[in-house]
Design a protein around this nucleic acid. Sequence first.
DNA 1: GTATTTATTGCGAATGCTTTGCATAAGCAA
DNA 2: TTGCTTATGCAAAGCATTCGCAATAAATAC
Lengths: 140, 140
Amino acid sequence: MATELIGQRMTSQRKLLLEIIRDAGGHLDADELFQKAKGRDPRISLSTIYRNLNLLKELDLVAERHFVEDHHHYELKDTAEHHHLVCRSCGEVFEFNSPLTPKMTKDVEETSQFQITDIEINMQGYCPNCPRDMHQESSI
Amino acid sequence: MATELIGQRMTSQRKLLLEIIRDAGGHLDADELFQKAKGRDPRISLSTIYRNLNLLKELDLVAERHFVEDHHHYELKDTAEHHHLVCRSCGEVFEFNSPLTPKMTKDVEETSQFQITDIEINMQGYCPNCPRDMHQESSI
DNA sequence: GTATTTATTGCGAATGCTTTGCATAAGCAA
DNA sequence: TTGCTTATGCAAAGCATTCGCAATAAATAC
Ligand SMILES: [Mn+2]
Ligand SMILES: [Mn+2]
Ligand SMILES: [Zn+2]
Ligand SMILES: [Zn+2]
């Protein structure tokens, strides 16, 4: 576990949150994390969840995902790079990793002259179990 | 102009909002649109902006972008498909379009068995005018 | 082990963005 | 023009996230 990497105080709340994120296997939002944490430490507060999520983001231990929603989802960052595909109907999240990503990044770096630090690719669609909307054409 | 495509009543507020989005050339958020609209119709309300943005999204006339922020940005959808690169320092938005995107989409469709309807690619980095953070390695 | 220091917590209140309820206004079809 | 109904403005509510502050508890020094 990466718990030793934190350069600040290792509080019980911090340890707990990291454990929960690790065990959940990704894509939980702040409130889901809070509910799980309360199950093990009923006195924990939602502010503590948010404060520690921000810390874990800065330490690069946790990634914040911005799906097409008004709140965010979190997952451990130590896993291999990957991107996300979310079902518009049931919400299932599929992870993928494409060898084209580094090429695209390099291309964009060259044409834009930006130094790129991060990519987030979010696709939406209908999973094999969900009824497709026949009037919705692929916009790609 | 696509104003005739709307299947509902063509109110002055709707026409105004669409004009502002078209003329602005993209990437404005709801409040920026509201401010510009107020300049031309001082009685317009922010609710009207949001209600019409939602309508224009449904009609596929406007795209909502989810940069790494807690609010959204809007742009006309009738332009060619493209994606975004935002400077972490000054906020400049660079648009790009990669021929690799359709390939990647096809790949993901095959391995996932999803029917993909939308892709959003958001990159972050440092633009040519902004000081780079030397400790920040490309995570790609 | 105890004291000291100071980061962190819990709580409540505040903030920022977006949606909603409702009475009034204004499109639109006849 | 009338009448039906959608859309608007306004104020209030709803969510997600952050902040202020007094109390708590890690870490460190004795
Ligand atoms: Mn993931
Ligand atoms: Mn754009
Ligand atoms: Zn599904
Ligand atoms: Zn810049």
